[in-house]
């Protein structure tokens, strides 16, 4: 039987700040290499979606004006359908500005907190102290053990996968997880959700947020497979469904290099701006 997935790229022409469409390039190719039939559709301003049309949503970050513009459109035309989907376990990935936008409040470049989409219970606030802090640099984080354990069991034949995620963060917003939301990973180097450096990313049902650019999925192929696996298991109602293990020689070489080069302590930096 041939599996089929529909991926939806939210606001690709507005939320396209920095390389985040690499995540869709990766999902699409990996589907192709695994023999999964895959359609990528874009959903932009003025367009309507019905529940049940999508197996995986992706949303990147944008410039301030664009992020503000999509909030109104989202609430008017898309929020109800997407909330129905995500509550039913449809996969959703938001990166950086997209992650902030998914929450109840997000932060504009001028420091103003603005109501977000509210599909995951996180809040993003302005940096608290008088110093304006920006978290910028390479980010290496250890996956939450429960998530890592699920990833390991995803493959039809045993496959060695790293317990880490690697990427590059660049944000001043400080994200705090609310009740019912689990962290995705714990930073080894860099900050993640906020300057405390305690956690990186968020998970609620199959909704995931992360601050990692790089892009996120190319150097973290195990996370890409995990998202595809969750989407297939939900769609085909088969919790034991397994994925074939692809040869990820290049991806894992880049991953391990980033862990070795940037994963040491002291490689992170807060820039202070007056």
């Amino acid at each position: 039987m041939t599996y089929h997935l529909t991926l939806t790229h939210l606001y690709p022409d507005h939320l396209n700040l920095y390389g985040d469409s690499g995540n869709l390039i990766v999902l699409k190719r990996r589907c192709q290499w695994m023999g999964i039939d895959c359609t990528v559709r874009s959903l932009t301003m003025g367009e309507v979606i019905q529940p049940g049309e999508t197996d995986l949503y992706f949303m990147g970050g944008g410039q301030d004006t664009d992020q503000v513009a999509v909030v109104d459109d989202f609430h008017a035309l898309k929020a109800a359908a997407i909330a129905t989907d995500t509550e039913a376990g449809v996969v959703f990935l938001g990166v950086c500005g997209g992650y902030q936008l998914m929450g109840h409040t997000f932060l504009m470049g001028n420091g103003q907190e603005t109501p977000g989409l509210g599909i995951i219970n996180v809040h993003t606030r302005a940096p608290g102290s008088a110093l304006q802090q920006r978290c910028i640099g390479n980010l290496v984080a250890t996956l939450e053990p429960a998530i890592y354990a699920e990833m390991v069991r995803l493959y039809s034949t045993p496959k060695t996968i790293p317990p880490t995620l690697v990427g590059f963060e660049n944000h001043s917003g400080q994200t705090l997880l609310g009740p019912g939301v689990q962290p995705l990973a714990k930073p080894i180097a860099g900050f993640g959700n906020n300057a405390s450096g305690d956690y990186e990313g968020a998970r609620y049902r199959n909704v995931f947020g992360s601050y990692m650019h790089g892009s996120l999925l190319p150097k973290n192929p195990h996370f890409a497979d995990y998202l595809l696996g969750l989407a297939l298991r939900r769609k085909y109602n088969d919790p034991t469904l397994r994925l074939p293990g692809l040869n990820d020689l290049e991806e894992l070489a880049a991953h391990h290099y980033a862990v070795d080069r940037y994963g040491g302590q002291g490689s992170h930096q807060i820039s202070h701006r007056s």
Binding site: Y18, G22, I25
Partner: peptide, 9 residues
Amino acid sequence: GRDVSWLWD
């Protein structure tokens, strides 16, 4: 540029 994300654009 320290962030290589631009390779994907």
